[in-house]
Design a protein around this nucleic acid. Structure first.
Length: 606
RNA sequence: GCCGAAGUAGCUCAGGGGUAGAGCAGCUGUUUUGUAAACAGCGGGUCGCGGGUUCGAAUCCUGUCUUCGGCUCCA
């Protein structure tokens, strides 16, 4: 079993030359912007994973076409060989004076608006530093560009040579929607031109792994404007892939004592009033529906309330617990228009959902069981590059509900389960659900963006709201705890991520078409069809015959581009000898072998 | 939702006020093929959609929809 966690390399990166270089590139850009857009207000400009950005507040809109102009100005300023000098302010007051008098470059105090706010946020006792880009011109005049900054930087602007401005975006000041939206300019910088070019090339390559492109090329799913944004249509191959994944997980869940349930797509608003979702979740729901009798219905955004109704439909004894209800439940959420992203973020999607109703003394054991299931799932899917995140309560926030004792017990159960199962996780304070702590799996997509996949959440809230009970050994009613869990997270997101991870070349057991039979000419088609039926019916494999009158080369090429794991070439020689010409997606021509030998060969990968 | 950008044939893209183009795919015919693209011919587009400017709009302006990169939010 593999449960490998790649730790972030952030500490190393932050001490690196590259980090300083990018930081200085950000400052250089700020200097260029200040010259090109007088009156522009600088906010923050840090190095990031693949480059840097600077947030600015400009009265003139900055467009993508302006980037070249800014780049040219940056190159000009870089060549001036400005020394980058660190200056430490004596105290906060001195720093404030410095910001107002020296960083504003005579443009008026208002350009320092954000810098002054940043200064206030510096904790007492922490050193307040500035970085000054300075040079003396031929006339002996000293030119400076001073910016409040923690640093560190490179020694001179001359070192900033290999960079490119990438894009423009809006970004809220301090990441808060209530604040003004600033203009963020993203750039990337490297130590050498080769590294820069490699990075740009890698971005191009990553685009080819994009699940939205592969999804179309491989015939997995599509979108139609007549259906609506974020509402995927699953094509035969994509639906086959889904069925395979669902079948695998259903088998696993059966082994682990889950029971299937099925629930409707809509429900009376009363169900969601009871669950509290109408208040906390209303703006993420599709508009409500009203029938002729004035009953309001909601398109379901989550499955839990339905499973709770089933739990409550009968008296539960402590002996009945844990109860584990599983459903591949399709839900609809009205995601904001700008956040819909292919099938990674859709408005309609199917969760591999289950709810476990457990006694407090069963919490740890059940949690371990779920973590074990998740490990099994990740192994089977072949996902190795992920992180496990324990989301805990932020003590400073008041958005959480429930008793502290419960939070402590639940958090401890998760930690113990992870330790027992050998799961490395990192703690993220404030990433708990409002009703309890959770463990999430985070995976990166082709473009390096983090996505939350599988999740396990402990919930004391819904049992409370629905007044769930079981009769204990003492003949008295007790309250069960709920565990929400989804090992995939959603089929859509998981398939999207798998597509990118494998660049469409799914492992044999998952591949929508596992084998392509390629008859060489018309006279081999009958034998091909015979072989097809044998593989499909006797060996339960997913097979296609390419009976078009095309050359073998063309058929191979297309099967290869469709990422079919095995191709079986069938010609005169094979029919005569009773063999098939086997070609593998990865290793090319494997030569002729008997069907039995081929079946034996592929058996381990099924 | 907000900021920035893009929508031309099924796909990838060119054209940029004066009769819509290429390659691939598709169709028809010829070829009967042994490990990544046979050959020839043909068809195919209200240039996302609405409004405006103009003698004339795919092209300019405007609105809108969808998509893409971010922000915020999330499985």
């Amino acid at each position: 079993m593999v449960w490998e966690v790649r730790l972030m390399e952030a500490p190393v990166y932050e001490e690196s030359y590259l980090y300083r270089l990018r930081h200085s590139a950000a400052h250089l850009m700020a200097q260029a912007l200040t010259e090109l857009y007088p009156g522009i207000k600088l906010a923050i400009g840090p190095p990031i994973e693949n480059g840097f950005y600077y947030d600015v507040d400009s009265s003139v809109p900055i467009r993508e076409e302006d980037l070249t102009k800014i780049e040219v100005k940056m190159k000009e300023l870089a060549k001036l060989d400005q020394r980058i000098v660190r200056i430490v302010a004596e105290d906060r007051d001195a720093a404030r004076t410095k910001i107002l008098e020296e960083t504003t470059l005579g443009q008026g105090p208002e350009v320092a608006e954000y810098k002054l706010q940043l200064l206030e946020a510096v904790p007492d006792g922490q050193e307040i530093s500035f970085y000054d880009q300075q040079r003396t011109d031929r006339a002996g005049v000293l030119h400076r560009f001073i910016d409040l900054c923690r640093g560190p930087h490179v020694d001179t602007t001359k070192e900033v040579k290999h960079f490119k401005l990438m894009s423009i975006a809006g970004a809220y000041w301090r990441g808060d929607v209530k604040n003004k939206q600033l203009t963020r300019i993203y750039g990337t910088a490297f130590e050498t031109q080769e590294e820069l070019e490699t990075h740009l090339h890698n971005l191009e390559e990553a685009r080819k792994r994009d699940h939205r492109i592969l999804g179309r090329e491989l015939g997995l799913f599509m979108f139609s404007p007549r259906v609506g944004p974020g509402l995927p249509l699953w094509l035969p191959k994509g639906a086959t892939l889904r069925d395979t994944m669902v079948g695998f997980l259903k088998d696993e869940q059966l082994k682990r004592g889950y029971e299937p349930v099925v629930t409707p797509q809509i429900a009376s608003i009363r169900l969601y009033e009871k669950s509290g979702h109408v208040i906390t979740y209303k703006d993420k729901m599709f508009p409500f529906m009203e029938d002729e009798e004035k009953e309001t219905y909601i398109l379901k955004p989550m499955n839990c309330p339905f499973h709770i109704e089933i739990y409550q439909s009968q008296m539960r004894s402590y002996r009945d617990l844990p109860v584990r209800y599983a459903e591949f439940g399709t839900v609809h959420r009205y995601e904001q228009s700008g956040e819909v992203t292919g099938i990674l973020r859709a408005r309609g999607f199917t969760q591999d959902d289950a709810h476990l109703f457990v006694r407090p003394d069963q919490l740890l054991e059940e949690f371990i069981g779920v973590v074990d299931l998740m490990k099994t799932v990740l192994n089977r899917l072949g996902l190795k590059d992920f992180k496990a995140r324990l989301g805990t309560k932020d003590p400073a926030s008041d958005k959480y509900i429930g008793h502290d004792d419960n939070w402590t017990a639940a958090t401890s159960a998760i930690e113990q389960a992870c330790q027992k199962m050998g799961v490395d996780y990192f703690v993220s304070v404030g990433d708990a659900a409002f009703y309890g702590p959770k463990l999430d799996l985070i995976i990166k997509d082709a473009l390096g963006r983090d996505w939350q996949m599988g999740t396990v959440q402990v919930d004391y809230n819904l049992p409370e709201r629905f007044e769930l009970e079981y009769i204990g050994e003492d003949s008295k009613p007790h309250r069960p705890i709920m565990i929400h869990r989804a090992p995939f997270g959603s089929l859509e997101r998981m398939i999207g991520l798998l597509t990118e991870q494998y660049a469409g070349a799914f492992p044999f057991w998952l591949a929508p078409v596992q084998i392509a039979i390629l008859p060489i000419s018309d006279r081999h088609v009958d034998a091909a069809k015979e072989l097809y039926l044998k593989l499909r019916d006797t060996h339960k494999l997913r097979v296609q015959v390419d009976e078009r009158r095309e050359t073998l080369g063309k058929k191979i090429r297309e099967a290869q581009l469709q990422k079919v794991p095995y191709m079986l070439v069938l010609g005169d020689r094979d029919i005569e000898m009773g063999t098939v010409g086997v070609r593998s997606r990865e290793d090319g021509d494997l030569g002729a072998m008997t069907l039995e030998a081929f079946i034996e060969k592929i058996t381990p990968s099924r």
